[in-house]
């Protein structure tokens, strides 16, 4: 729903760079380069950022 705060495997904090990553990719930068620049080096962390789908805005339309 929201980007995981830490990497599932190694425990690195990732959520803090997610918004910057999203901005860079929307500007047309290659995801791999954006991740390198943000210091996401290991593939365990990269898959978390790369495969994340932010659904909270969709779900926010139907509050409890």
């Amino acid at each position: 729903m929201m980007v995981p705060i830490r990497c599932f495997s190694c425990g690195k904090q990732l959520a803090g760079v997610y918004e910057e990553f999203k901005k860079k990719v929307e500007k047309g930068e290659k995801p791999e380069k954006a991740m390198d620049d943000l210091g996401i080096k290991r593939y365990c962390c990269r898959r978390i950022i790369f495969s994340h789908v932010d659904l909270i805005d969709e779900i926010s339309k139907y509050p409890r």
Partner: peptide, 15 residues
Amino acid sequence: ITDKNIPITKLSKNQ
């Protein structure tokens, strides 16, 4: 908190 930019949750109007 060390990383100030971590999004915790999103709140919409009146939440």
